[in-house]
Design a protein around this nucleic acid. Sequence first.
DNA 1: GTCTATATGACGATAGAC
DNA 2: GTCTATCGTCATATAGAC
Lengths: 171, 171
Amino acid sequence: MASTRDRILDALQDVLLDSGPAGATLDGVAQRAGVSKGGLLYHFRSKDDLFTGLLDRLSAGAAAADAATPPEPEAAARFFLEGSQSADSPEERTLLAALRLLGTHPPARARLASYLDDWAAGLRRTIDDPVTSRLVQLVGDGLFLHALLGAGDPDLDARVIALVLARTRPE
Amino acid sequence: MASTRDRILDALQDVLLDSGPAGATLDGVAQRAGVSKGGLLYHFRSKDDLFTGLLDRLSAGAAAADAATPPEPEAAARFFLEGSQSADSPEERTLLAALRLLGTHPPARARLASYLDDWAAGLRRTIDDPVTSRLVQLVGDGLFLHALLGAGDPDLDARVIALVLARTRPE
DNA sequence: GTCTATATGACGATAGAC
DNA sequence: GTCTATCGTCATATAGAC
């Protein structure tokens, strides 16, 4: 059973994803969550507090992603690279929503930087060579940026991924 | 001599870069540009029109970047990768300001996607192998994302860049 | 071309009933 | 715990003088 608090954060994500921070008003979020503005403000004292709640949810997801990273180098790299391309899972939705807070909510920048770093912890742990590990991370983040902007060429990207994965295999 | 119009767009960039979209009010931009709000609205009919003006300036910069790409594959890749790490030039400032419009101004997403694509046109033209060219682009965009969030490890990144550059050299 | 003054509306947050 | 009602503030945009 989802708590009202969680439903409010879900609504905040929805609003951020389809109207951006400009549409993320207390009224708008409350309406989407099916509560009144007063009800919302009982759970989150201010708009800042609401945004902090979303970033906390994001941080919680980072630990889960780290734990889900496979123990084999190539599988870990594939897990990371393929996860960078889409926005299907609930965790990805939270990330995309949080990215929209950049510029609007100053603490978002540092929290997102930590998130990217925590996510790549699984790569550093699994892949011995730090240069290879960083290469995988940078390519993944590049893919993520393109997915964010709705650009990218799936076929070509698949070939780049294959090239990078080859480097994770012992020779 | 900079026109008033240009000075207003400069002011918009300044405001976006240090207060984010929330601080980008007509009053704030006008004050920074040294004109009144009425004066601003003579040059740009609405806030939307003002944002469009910034995105037009960005598009103009993409063509210049393409033209500035060196004709040799490795030099082109180095130009791209090193340009992805910093935010010094006027063009980079325009890009960073435009990125802040994501979420606030819906058309910004597509315009930014085109910009990234136009920027990489120089790579596609110079580097024969499309997979290598795309690899350079993705790593560059990953570096850019990290620079944007203020993260990154310069020494390690330099080693990744060296690795990628090696692939642009004929064997 | 640039200004001042003002109409109009939206947002964040508080107070207090239920 | 959730609601309605309301206050104060600030933003966009218009109108019209200079």
